Structures are given as structure tokens and as C-alpha cells.
Amino acid sequence: MMLPLPQGRVDRGTPIEAACRIIILEDQLEEALRINAEFCPHRRIGESKGRR
């Protein structure tokens, strides 16, 4: 069963260039989070700088 995508997604007329940019940004975010985790292994996602 295929669920409908929310309005504003590719099947609703979003330009293909914008869809590709979203995918690229998601990939860049994933890589940045991975690199950050390597440099700061003691920190968890969502943890503020002042708390440990």
C-alpha cells in the first residue's frame, strides 16, 4: 500500500531541482552529524553546551 505524500512534495509540482537540493542537504546533514560525533564523542545530539 502506497501512502500519499504530504502536499508540496515532488508529486505535487515541486521542481525537480528543489527535490534534488533537499536530498543533497539531507546527505550533508547526515555527514556533518557523523563528523561532529567523531570530534565530540562525549556529547549527545540535543545536549546544550553548558550541560554535561
Rank of each mutant, 00 (worst) to 15 (best):
M1N: 08
M1D: 00
M2Y: 03
L3F: 11
P4M: 06
P4R: 11
L5W: 00
L5R: 07
P6N: 03
P6A: 08
P6Y: 00
P6H: 07
P6R: 14
Q7A: 06
G8S: 11
G8I: 03
G8C: 02
G8P: 02
G8N: 07
R9E: 13
R9M: 15
R9F: 08
V10F: 02
V10K: 05
V10P: 00
V10S: 10
V10R: 09
V10T: 01
V10G: 10
D11L: 04
D11N: 09
D11Q: 07
R12N: 12
R12C: 04
G13I: 12
G13Q: 01
G13S: 04
T14S: 07
T14I: 06
T14C: 02
T14M: 11
P15K: 06
I16T: 04
E17G: 02
E17N: 15
A18H: 11
A19P: 00
C20T: 05
R21Y: 08
I23S: 03
I23K: 07
I23H: 08
I23R: 10
I24C: 06
I24L: 15
I24W: 01
L25Q: 12
L25C: 06
E26R: 11
E26G: 12
E26T: 01
E26L: 12
E26H: 01
D27A: 02
D27V: 03
D27R: 00
Q28T: 10
Q28G: 00
Q28P: 01
Q28S: 08
Q28M: 13
L29G: 11
E30R: 15
E30L: 10
E30H: 05
E31C: 03
E31K: 11
A32R: 13
A32Q: 15
A32K: 12
L33V: 11
L33H: 05
L33F: 12
L33S: 07
R34M: 14
I35H: 15
I35D: 09
N36F: 12
N36W: 10
N36Y: 13
A37G: 08
A37I: 04
A37C: 06
E38D: 11
F39C: 15
F39A: 13
F39E: 12
C40H: 12
C40N: 14
C40A: 10
C40I: 04
H42A: 08
H42P: 00
H42V: 02
H42C: 02
R43K: 14
R43L: 15
R43C: 08
R43F: 03
I45F: 05
I45G: 02
I45M: 05
I45A: 11
G46N: 09
G46H: 01
G46M: 07
E47G: 09
E47N: 02
S48C: 06
S48W: 05
K49F: 13
G50D: 08
G50Y: 04
R51Y: 09
R52V: 09
